[in-house]
Structures are given as C-alpha cells and as structure tokens.
C-alpha cells in the first residue's frame, strides 16, 4: 500500500515539481555526435492511476479500499502489457535510440549502476567506447490515468520522463527537461507536455482490460511520443 501511495503521489504531481530547464544547443567547438544512453531508472511496475475516487472522502478506510483497487488495476495492467510483449526497459531504450538516431546521433547503450530510481546519476561511468555525452533518463511512471470516475474522464495512457544530457569530458549539463505525455493537470508551465492520442482512451477500466492489445499499444505510443520529444529537444 505504501508503494501505491508513493507512486500515486508521484503521478499526481507529475510535472508539478519545479526544475530549471536547460535548453540544448549544439556547440560548434565541442559538437555532440555520440551519446551514451545510460540504463534508465524505471519503476517496478506500470501505474493505473485514478486521480479522484469516492474513497478519498472516507479517510483511512477509504484510502485502504482505494489502495486495494489501485493495486488490482496495476496488476491487471501489468498482465496486459506483458501478455502483449511490452517490456518497459526495452521500449524506453529502443524508442530513445530511434529518436536520437533520427536526429543524427550515434547511440551507445551504457550500463549504469543507480542507487535511486528517482535521482539522476552523480558520477557517470567510464565507457569502452568513447562518448561525447551521457543521456540520463528517469521514468517515474507510465501506464494509464484518469481524472475521475465516469465516461467524461476516460482512461488514457501516460508516460513521464525526466531527462538530462551531460557532457562526458567535464560533466556540464547540456540539456535538462521533463516531459509528460498526458499530464493530468495542465497548469504549470515548466514541464513539456504532450496531449494524449484519442485513439487510445477508454470510458472505464474494464474497457481498457477488454481491449488488451490496443491498450498495450497505447502505452507504447505514449513512450514513443515522449522519446520523440526528447529527440526534438536535442535537435
């Protein structure tokens, strides 16, 4: 249950946390051509997040009921994704590689040891193949989210990536951006936001479960679009 609250809070606050965006600019003096894509920090499982529930009005009892239902939905979503061969590490690494290559970069996958799933790496590894910069990516959450109960607030896929590009020679931060696909609140203006594709939305969670293959494809689209935006920001 504790994990549910932590994940729920993270998803709800997606994009609310402030950070100082650093726009990327290719330098003529020290051009970035080869990027070391570090093993991304990933959550243990997808999230099926309902922002507002009846249970929220009934204190701790309601919270316990909510946690149980959320855990059940997350488990169901996890089954949907794995049965449709969606594996988050593979999706993130392959979509980011494709997005970076699309912008003309050479990409090297770099194994990274992380001490936290929430923080960027502080000491970047040495690599066998030299790289110009490291792309450090944290995925705090992905899955499906809905603003509330009812057909007017459908379930849509969401994905959240925190990204940082760091120059290999001197650890200078060359780019820092957070990107959220289908952010539930659209009020803060620091995070890059992407509207969800309406092809993948369900009036209720059972509809999402029933259309299993399409639901998994929706999360794949969310991850791909988020990665493509990372590529755009590194253009």
């Amino acid at each position: 249950m504790r994990r549910f609250f932590v994940v729920a809070l993270f998803v709800f606050l997606a994009g609310c946390a402030t950070y100082k965006s650093v726009p990327f600019e290719q330098s003529a003096a020290q051009p970035i051509k080869r990027i070391g894509l570090l093993s991304p920090a990933l959550p243990n499982e997808p999230t099926a997040f309902l922002a507002t529930t009846v249970g929220q009005s009934f204190g701790i009892i309601g919270a316990i009921v909510d946690a149980s239902m959320a855990s059940s939905r997350a488990s169901s979503l996890n089954t949907i994704l794995t049965s449709n061969k969606f594996y988050i590490r593979q999706e993130v690494e392959s979509s980011l590689t494709a997005a970076l290559e699309e912008q003309g970069y050479e990409v090297v996958l770099v194994n990274a040891t992380r001490t936290s799933k929430r923080d960027f790496i502080q000491t970047y590894p040495t690599t066998d193949e030299p790289v110009d910069a490291f792309l450090d990516v944290i995925v705090p959450g992905y899955g499906y989210a809905s603003a509330g109960i009812g057909s007017s607030t459908p379930w849509r896929p969401f994905a959240w990536m925190k990204t940082r590009l760091v120059r290999a020679t001197d650890n200078a931060v060359l780019m820092r951006e957070d990107i959220v696909y289908n952010r539930l609140t659209d009020q803060r203006d620091d995070t890059v936001t992407i509207s969800a594709d309406p092809s993948y939305q369900y009036a209720d969670f059972s509809g999402l479960e029933y259309n299993s293959a399409q639901s998994a494809e929706g999360v794949r689209v969310a991850i791909t679009e988020t990665s493509n935006t990372v590529g755009k920001l590194l253009k």
Partner: peptide, 25 residues
C-alpha cells in the same frame, strides 16, 4: 486541440471534517 483535466477539492467545515474531490476534463 488539447485536453486538460481539472481536479476540484471541496472541504467541509465544522466538527465533522471531510473532503470531496472530483475530476473533470
């Protein structure tokens, strides 16, 4: 075209305290 969600929160006053949250978009 962009879709946004709004989370509204209403709180009661008085001796019985409770919160109602509703989502809309």
């Amino acid at each position: 075209q962009r879709t946004s969600s709004v989370i509204n929160q209403y709180q009661s006053g008085g001796p019985i305290y409770f919160t109602v949250r509703t989502g809309s978009e």
